[in-house]
């Protein structure tokens, strides 16, 4: 019989068991990979001090700054452009796919499937695939970021519509409003803050990812970093990383500020 006492006792044993299980999975996998966690951890301070010495920008690195910032701004704009286009596509698709606003169960499943497909192919894989058709260009990076963002945003927007708009939709439907009136007067105004919040998050994310994609597509700030790194100009590479960090932090502060105002 299930009494509260033996229910709690069983729950306690389950928790202990789960922790033990996770521990043994870690030990087993380190043994298979011949991976020594402890040596790794011990090496961390040394690795960082090496980084600190070699990647430290010097007074000499200053004259790389114009090139770095020019490319960096280009990369940020690329990330913004891809996110904005992705958002427009995603909101239309999400309206079609969401249960409250969209088609039948089949349409929903298809839209979910498409979103999941675009989302689950890693960004690097998208970039490699697109390189075949579009060569090393900004457009390749733009498209790779766009496709992945579309996947994420469709999914997010569909959930937002379900959670935040279903009830108001019902109220407007009951007044005799037509489909497009309901979408424009109830759904879009209602979900706008969450929508913008997600778009800002996606822009932040895409600025970071654009750097990575740039290494592959030979464009933007990623390319600059790659060149400096491979030609052993570590101080310039360090300067590039520092600039990226500054931009990412500034963007994050900025978008948090925007969120505060709109929410």
């Amino acid at each position: 019989m299930q009494t509260p006492v033996n229910y709690l006792a069983r729950k306690h044993w389950k928790q202990t068991g789960t922790i033990a299980l996770i521990g043994s999975i870690y030990l087993l996998s380190s043994w298979i990979l011949k991976f020594d966690g402890l040596t790794g951890i011990v090496a961390i301070p040394k690795a960082f001090s090496w980084l600190g010495i070699n990647f430290k920008p010097t007074a000499n690195s200053i004259h790389f700054l114009p090139t770095i910032w020019q490319k960096l701004i280009g990369t940020v704009l690329l990330a913004i452009a891809s996110t904005v286009v992705a958002s427009f596509i995603a909101i239309f698709v999400a309206l079609i796919g969401a249960k409250a606003t969209g088609g039948n169960a089949l349409v929903q499943t298809v839209v979910r499937g498409i979103a999941s497909f675009f989302r689950n192919i890693p960004l690097v894989a998208w970039a490699m695939i697109l390189l075949f058709s579009f060569k090393q260009s900004d457009f390749t990076g733009f498209l790779a970021l766009l496709l992945m963002s579309v996947g994420y945003l469709i999914r997010a927007f569909m959930e937002i519509i379900e959670d935040e708009a279903s009830e108001t939709m019902l109220a407007l439907k009951a007044t005799g409003a037509s489909y497009f009136q309901v979408i424009f007067q109830a759904v879009l105004p209602q979900i706008m803050p969450s929508l913008i919040s997600w778009i800002l998050y996606m822009i932040e994310n895409n600025v970071r990812d654009a750097t990575l994609v740039g290494i592959l597509t030979g464009t933007g700030i990623g390319f600059v970093f790659d060149i400096y790194y491979k030609s052993f100009r570590f101080d310039a590479a360090g300067m590039t990383v520092l600039s990226i960090i500054v931009v990412v932090i500034v963007l994050e502060v900025l978008s948090n500020q925007i969120r505060k105002v709109i929410l």
Binding site: E167, T168, L170, A171, L172, T175, G176, A177, S178, F180, Q181, Q185, A186, P189, Q190, M192, P193
Partner: peptide, 22 residues
């Protein structure tokens, strides 16, 4: 079930939607 982001008068006017062109 109001559109919380919109003003009071906009929400009241929603009641007219059934009479208006799309």
């Amino acid at each position: 079930n109001l559109v919380e982001r919109l003003t009071v008068i906009e929400n009241v006017l929603h009641g007219r939607l059934g009479y208006k062109s799309t």
